[in-house]
Design a protein around this nucleic acid. Structure first.
Lengths: 343, 343
DNA sequence: TTGTATGCGTTATCAT
DNA sequence: ATGATAACGCATACAA
């Protein structure tokens, strides 16, 4: 009682009752006298009793804890997802263990091992840029352990994925630029290992084709690092070379769009008059920029919430992972602001 | 082995050995033959054995898990702190359980209860704006349970706090504005319940006094909500009324600074020519704005890392919470950019 | 209405 | 070099 918490046994000893009686009384079991219940609860309160969730976990082989593996916490989109996850988990009585892979495959692997050791009931994953093998996931999936992937979803048969419609979002953004009269639209692409990169590039291409515009391979610029500096440099080079002559940029993410904005400004180009720009993700700062940056909004919090609901439903066997719908696609929303509106 | 994980007992049965032998072999205890060790490890590998951390926790009364309670995840500064926490925890073999209070006292209280139930080894806390009583902390502190507070640190005797030097940061920012020739500097303050709000306001006042400038109470504008809209509206009102006539704004946070920027732009004022602006926190987007926003950088990741190191040192009894230094103050760094540089 | 015994997975202690 | 037993805190099947 001084050091360790008071346990059921302590209460039992104090009241000259058996541990089982205490356990039952605290949970309002039928066959316990009201008098005993009262006394037990009183004493529990007095002794500052707190049930030991660890002991409970061991007994039930359930920890009421889920794991979350994300590339990094300091990332607006992922932070919104985590917020949604935490929200739903908390409301349904689950804890959230969080680890960041820092975009390292190795840490992703060790994280999932640690989590399994900790008997978590399920895990939510957005895999790292480095991840090119999925054995560490399939291995545990095959054991019947619940995993729900979000945003960055692997092409594993049977895996449950929650994503946004990257293809459609990119299609909408590009179509919007075309409708504003931009004709030579360059796409700043992401890391090639991610499916979202390919989906967004495909949406971009499809929009061009649908509108009878040519698709030039050299109009798709990979930005693997994803920093402002990288895209700023690449766009600057593009603008100073005479080969391409772009009049708009659709970036795979907002950081890339900011780099493009800066490069255009450096080159003396007016936004949106000379050049139109649209980003992807609709980070917080988009509406704080001058001009306000158009972007494709992704429902991050909703994605986290939905993914968690699905995971918990699987854990609680409210749905059957075998027969259920394997992929949930959330809609994006184009936020067309000043950076891309000529009319 | 089909459903649940393989346990030590399963290996024991398979090898016709006792559980204790398996346990020892796996941990390379001295008195076990190399031959047995080899066989055991082989079988463990084959059966895909994973130690049950829950059982270990129960036995050792230690979970190797720490809790983190923050107001919200979707907040650049807090996300950097969490990143630092997670980093250090992971490297020292601890898990991190994360909850957000959503600035609600009630959730803060229930969170800490849940965490204690889960036998976490210690907790890192930044309390909510709503928190006006600290009983829920003192109660567990008095039981000898380790808590380290960061950023928002309570005035509890004996509590261990890791903060930045808000006073000095505000002093530096204000001094910088004065040095740039601004004379009528308004302070956009934060929620009055937070100590950081008072410290920053005091640093602002001290800088004015030191430079022989008057301190007008009506030059300190409280922005309790902390939204762009709020500060934009308040600054607009201020600019249109003839009473104050400010030529600079030092905001308690970057969001407030952005609101001020927008209000100034709306009023046709040039930044930094007519009005100088400095924010606090140096969020990611500061250097993406036009003009680039000056701000006081807070070492969020470092704060998380330091707080975690202290907490783990206490948990592992490497330092004594009684005799140790109770408060660690980290330095801020003024990032003077275009929004406040006239010369 | 209450008590006893057992087991969840692991390891420390005390045998052999 | 290995085994048997007890214990961590709790819940439950079975007894009384």
């Amino acid at each position: 009682m001084k050091l360790g918490q008071a346990t059921i046994k302590d209460i039992a000893r104090e009241l000259n009752l058996s541990a089982s009686t205490i356990s039952r009384a605290l949970k309002d079991y039928p066959g316990i006298s009201d008098e005993t219940k009262r006394k037990v609860k009183e004493m529990a309160e007095k002794m500052n009793y707190r049930p030991n969730a660890i002991a409970l976990s061991l007994r039930k082989s359930r920890s009421f804890t889920i794991g979350v593996i994300i590339p990094e916490v300091v990332h607006f989109f992922f932070s919104t997802v985590v917020s949604g996850i935490e929200e739903v988990a908390q409301s349904r009585g689950y804890n959230v263990i969080l680890v960041q892979s820092n975009e390292k495959l190795e840490r992703e692997i060790s994280s999932i091992e640690t989590m399994l050791s900790n008997q978590i009931d399920g895990v939510l994953v957005s895999y790292s840029k480095e991840t090119n093998t999925f054995e560490h996931f399939t291995r545990v999936l095959d054991q019947g352990f619940p995993i729900v992937f979000f945003d960055r979803a692997p092409q594993i048969p049977g895996a449950i994925n929650v994503m946004v419609d990257d293809y459609q979002g990119a299609f909408d953004a590009t179509t919007h630029l075309i409708s504003q009269g931009y004709k030579n639209i360059v796409h700043l692409a992401g890391p090639p290992s991610l499916k979202i990169t390919r989906d967004r590039a495909n949406g971009y291409k499809a929009a061009l084709e649908k509108n009878g515009l040519p698709v030039h391979p050299d109009h798709i610029i990979p930005c693997p690092l994803g920093t402002v500096e990288e895209s700023q440099k690449l766009v600057s080079e593009l603008l100073s070379s005479s080969a391409v002559n772009p009049d708009a940029f659709f970036a795979c993410n907002d950081i890339g769009a900011v780099g493009a904005m800066m490069a255009c400004r450096d080159a003396g180009l007016k936004i949106p008059l000379d050049v139109g720009i649209v980003g992807f993700s609709d980070w917080q700062f988009c509406s704080m920029l001058e001009p306000k940056l158009s972007s494709v909004a992704q429902p991050g919090t909703l994605m986290g919430a939905k993914a968690t609901e699905i995971l918990l439903d699987i854990i609680e066997k409210k749905i059957d992972p075998e027969t259920m719908e394997k992929s949930l696609v959330l809609e994006t929303k184009l936020m067309d602001r000043d950076s891309s509106k000529r009319f």
